[in-house]
Design a protein around this nucleic acid. Structure first.
Lengths: 357, 357
DNA sequence: CTGAAAGCGCTTACAG
DNA sequence: CTGAAAGCGCTTACAG
C-alpha cells in the first residue's frame, strides 16, 4: 500500500552550502558568491570552490535561495487557457530550453491572476512569459506589479502595453504576403478574404500583408472581396454561406484556420469540391489543419521557436544580461497542402518539400 | 524601456505571520498552527486569528513554509512529452482544480528526471502526478525516492510498479465493449481489429473488451480478424494495405486513433468510401479525430475528468486525508461520428446527442 | 578579495 | 492549549 507518511522530515542528508564551505575551506558567503558568479571572488578560490562543489555533487537549494532574496530558477508561464491544444508546441519550446538551462516552469492560466501575484510576491518565479488573451484589461494590475518590482517579463504576441515591453512576435505581414504570391501563382483571379475583427492587430497585419502581396503581383484589386469575421469556425461557415451563394470566387483566404475550417464545412455541405471548384487557405497552422479534408494550406506560426526564443531571452533577462532589442519578429512558413490546389498524397506532410522550392 | 532591475529587494512590505501575530495578540507559533489547521488550538483563538488574517489580507509565504518543512501548495506534473497536444485536456482538468484549491503546478517532461529529483529534494513540490511513458524503466529511481520520502504520487494510467500505487485509469474494457455493441447494431458481419503491441496493457484490455462485446451479441467470432499493430499511423496504413487488398470486411476497429487515421488514409488512396464501403473506428478521441474526413467514431478517454480526479486526490493525499481506494477507473464515452456509418452534418459535434440516447 | 552576522518567513519539538 | 527558541539553507550589506 502506498503510504502517505507526511510531514516527517526524512532528510536524506542533503549536501548544503555549509558542507561545501568546510570542504573547500571557505566561508558560506564565499561559496554563495561562487554559485552566483560574483566577479569579486579570486579566480583561484573560484576554482577550488567549484572543485569542492563537484566532488560533493552539491546542488543549491533554490527554496532557501529564494527566501533570502536570490533566484529560484523558475519562470511562470501565463496562458489564456489550456482547454485547446493551441499552445502545446509553444510549451514544448519553452520546456526544451528549460531543461537545457536547468530551469523549472510553473503553468498558470488567466483564471488565476491572484495566484500569479502571489507567485511574484513570494519570489517563487524569477520572471514571467505572458501569452495574453484577447482582452488586455486583465493584465493591468499584473503589469504594474511586474514593472514596479522589476521582474522580467516577455510577451508572446503584441503586448497589451506600449512602452517597450519585451515581446516575441510573428511576421503576420510577411506570412500573408507570401500567401498572396502563392495565390497568384495558382492563377486565382477572384478572391474572398475573410478578416478578423477590425480592431484585432493580427488580423489587420494579415490583411495588409495579403493586399500588399497581391498588389506586388499586379492582381486586379477590384476582384478582391473582403468580409469581416471574428476568427470563429461558425463565422467562417456563415460568411461563406452568405457570400458564396451569390458570388463565385476562385479562392478564399481566411485570416485564421478556424474560419477556414468553417468555409471548408460549408463547401462540403454544398457539394463544392475543394480545391477543384474553389481553393481555401487559412493562417496559423492550427493543430487540426493538417488533418482536415483536404489538408489545409496555411501559414505556420513557428510556435516551437517562439517558445525557445522567449525562454532564452527570459533567462538572459533573469541573469542580468543586457538585451539590445525589446521586440523580436519571427518568420512564418507557408504550408502548402491540398486545399489551395497543390497536390500531395494522403500523407501530406511527408511530401511537403516537393512542391516549388 | 523595460528595466531589468534585478536583485533589489523592493519589498512592497508584505504582510507576514509576525503582523498577524501582533494584530491577533498571539505568538507566531499559534498563527502558524491556525494556518495549518492544527486541532490543538482552541476554537475561540482559531476564530480570532482567522479574523486577523482576513482583516490584514494575509497570505502565507509558501517559500518560507517549504524551507521550514511545511508545504508549498505546489504539485509537479510529469508528462512523457509536450510535443503533441494529447495532454492539453488533462492539463486543463488539473489546472481547474489547482485554481479552485489555490495550488500551483509545475510542469516537467520525461527528459528532466534529474530536475524532478531536485524538486523533490528541496521540497518544491508537495506531490507528483505522473503520466508515464511507454518504457517504465525511467521511473524507477524516481519511484524509490518518492516512496522513501513518503511523498504522495498518483499515476495516470496503469502504474509501472505494482504494489498498490495510486492510479487513475480508464475503462478500456468497457469502452471497447461498447464499440463492439455499436458495431453489431450497425449490422457488421466481418470485422478487422487492429491491436497495439501484444505487451501493451491498454491494447490488451481494449482487445478483450471488444471480443467480449461481440460475443455478448452473438457475433460469429470466425469473422473477426485480428492483426497486431504498434499504435502508429504508418502501421495502420500498412496493415490496412496488407489486409484489405485480399480480404473484404464491413468494418475496421483500431485500438487507437492514430492507427485508425492510417486506415482512413489508405481507404482514401484506394478510392474506398468511408463509411459507405467500409466503416472505421478508433479509440482515444485524439485531438485530430473529430476533424478527420469523415469524422472518426471513437471511444473518448475523459482526459479532463482524469485531470480533475487526479488533482483532487493528490490534494487529499497532501493534506493527509486517508483515501480508501488506491485505484480509480473512469468510464469512457462512445463518440458516434460519421466514420462508422452514423449520420451527422458537417458540424458533427453539434449533433452528437441526437443519435441513440 | 573574504568572513561574521543578521535576516528572509515560516514550522515544530519542547516546555509549561 | 500556547509561547520561546532553534532551525530550515541560503544571500548580502557591512567591515576589514
Amino acid at each position: 500500500m502506498l503510504q502517505y507518511v507526511i510531514g516527517y522530515n526524512m532528510n536524506i542528508d542533503r549536501i548544503t552550502i555549509e558542507d561545501v564551505a568546510r570542504r573547500a575551506g571557505y566561508s558560506r558567503a564565499t561559496i554563495s558568491r561562487v554559485i552566483n558568479n560574483d566577479r569579486r571572488v579570486k579566480p583561484s578560490t573560484m576554482k577550488r570552490v567549484r572543485a569542492a562543489i563537484d566532488e560533493l555533487g552539491y546542488v543549491p537549494n533554490v527554496i532557501a535561495s529564494a527566501l533570502s532574496g536570490g533566484k529560484t530558477r523558475t519562470v511562470g508561464i501565463l496562458l489564456p487557457d489550456l482547454s485547446s491544444p493551441y499552445y502545446s508546441n509553444l510549451l514544448e519550446g519553452i520546456d526544451r530550453v528549460a531543461i537545457e538551462r536547468n530551469y523549472h516552469i510553473v503553468l498558470k492560466t488567466k483564471h488565476s491572476t491572484r495566484s500569479v501575484l502571489e507567485l511574484l510576491e513570494t519570489r517563487q518565479v524569477d520572471g514571467l512569459i505572458i501569452r495574453h488573451s484577447r482582452d488586455p484589461e486583465d493584465d493591468l494590475s499584473l503589469l504594474n506589479r511586474l514593472q514596479s518590482q522589476g521582474i522580467p517579463f516577455i510577451f508572446i504576441g503584441k503586448p497589451s502595453i506600449d512602452d517597450g515591453a519585451y515581446a516575441i512576435m510573428v511576421d503576420n505581414v510577411g506570412g500573408a504576403r507570401e500567401m498572396a504570391h502563392h495565390f497568384v501563382e495558382h492563377g486565382f483571379r477572384t478572391i474572398l478574404f475573410i478578416s478578423g475583427r477590425s480592431e484585432n492587430l493580427d488580423s489587420r497585419d494579415r490583411g495588409y500583408g495579403f493586399r500588399l502581396g497581391l498588389a506586388e503581383r499586379h492582381f486586379d484589386m477590384n476582384n478582391l472581396h473582403t468580409l469581416e469575421g471574428d476568427f470563429s469556425r461558425e463565422c467562417g461557415y456563415e460568411i461563406a454561406g452568405r457570400f458564396l451563394a451569390e458570388h463565385r470566387v476562385d479562392a478564399v483566404f481566411a485570416a485564421n484556420d478556424r474560419m477556414a475550417l468553417g468555409v471548408l464545412l460549408y463547401c462540403h455541405e454544398q457539394g463544392m469540391r475543394v480545391p477543384d471548384d474553389i481553393a481555401v487557405a487559412g493562417f496559423d497552422d492550427a493543430f487540426f489543419s493538417e488533418y482536415l479534408w483536404p489538408p489545409l494550406t496555411t501559414v505556420r506560426q513557428p510556435m516551437h521557436e517562439i517558445g525557445t526564443v522567449a525562454m532564452e531571452n527570459m533567462i538572459l533577462a533573469i541573469e542580468g544580461t543586457k538585451v539590445s532589442t525589446s521586440r523580436i519578429i519571427l518568420p512564418t512558413k507557408l504550408m502548402k497542402r491540398k486545399s489551395c490546389g497543390c497536390s500531395f498524397d494522403h500523407f501530406g506532410a511527408r511530401l511537403q518539400d516537393q512542391s516549388h522550392q
